[in-house]
């Protein structure tokens, strides 16, 4: 069953002669429990697509339907609630809160939802353990390596048991070995939890870790493998 359906989505920045088409009639779907890599060069529209699926941007036309829910029709307020409850977002630059320790960064997610319980703390420590970071739980982001930060960011995205993980260039700031480790870990967690994952990358080697690859060029789906 398709959890995520992207139907004929286009996005144009600007208007008139200055208009730039970032996405042009993109259509695809993703099954529950699978990992899709969106591969493409810089400027191909990967991040715009991710932003639209996350409800951060409105498409100029087309539909985004997640589990029967038309996300593109949501207001910014309900889109925020949707991200908080259903989406796990991982940024290229990690965006860990610099004044919170690794475990506190994970606890940010339940904090955004209203309250942090003992169960949340236990879960956060468990997740850090799964990513090999149990001894780094109390370390601040500035005390972690790039790979560790990225793993904390992924663990944070898993804290709210999301239906969909949206991962933006997770290996862009890592060397090949660490990048491969991170993608492998991500794949294991996604499949182990039966969730859906969209990973944006410009690195074909990293995309090979996914179940499917969608190649974007100039805002269009050039290839679906």
């Amino acid at each position: 069953m398709s959890l995520l359906q992207v139907r004929d989505v286009s996005k144009t920045y600007g208007s008139g002669r200055a208009a730039v088409a970032a996405l042009d009639g993109v259509t695809f779907s993703v099954e529950t429990g699978s990992m899709l890599a969106i591969l493409g060069p810089s400027g191909s529209g990967k991040t715009t697509l991710l932003s639209i699926i996350a409800g951060l941007l409105q498409p100029s036309s087309g539909e985004i339907v997640i589990d029967g829910d038309p996300i593109h029709l949501r207001s910014s307020r309900t889109a925020a609630a949707y991200r908080r409850e259903k989406i796990g977002l991982v940024f290229q630059d990690y965006h860990l809160i610099p004044y919170l320790s690794a475990v506190e960064n994970l606890l940010l997610m339940p904090r955004l939802a209203g309250r942090v319980s003992a169960e949340h703390r236990e879960k956060a420590r468990g997740l850090l353990g799964e990513f090999g970071l149990e001894k780094r739980a109390k370390h601040m982001p500035s005390e972690l390596s790039g790979g560790e930060r990225q793993r904390v960011a992924i663990a944070r995205a898993l804290m709210n048991d999301p239906e969909i993980m949206l991962v933006d260039e997770p290996t862009a700031n890592l060397d090949t070995e660490r990048g491969t480790q991170v993608v492998t870990m991500l794949g294991e967690h996604v499949r182990g939890r039966a969730m859906t994952c969209l990973m944006v990358t410009h690195d074909g080697r990293m995309a090979e870790g996914a179940d499917r690859i969608l190649r974007l060029i100039d805002g269009r789906v050039a290839e679906s493998l």
Binding site: L56, A80, Y82, R83, F91, H95, M109, L112
Partner: peptide, 16 residues
């Protein structure tokens, strides 16, 4: 600004 944008992207409301 960057940090607030990230927290909002994670689902924080403006009120939060």
């Amino acid at each position: 600004t960057g940090q607030i944008a990230a927290v909002k992207a994670l689902g924080a409301s403006n009120a939060f």
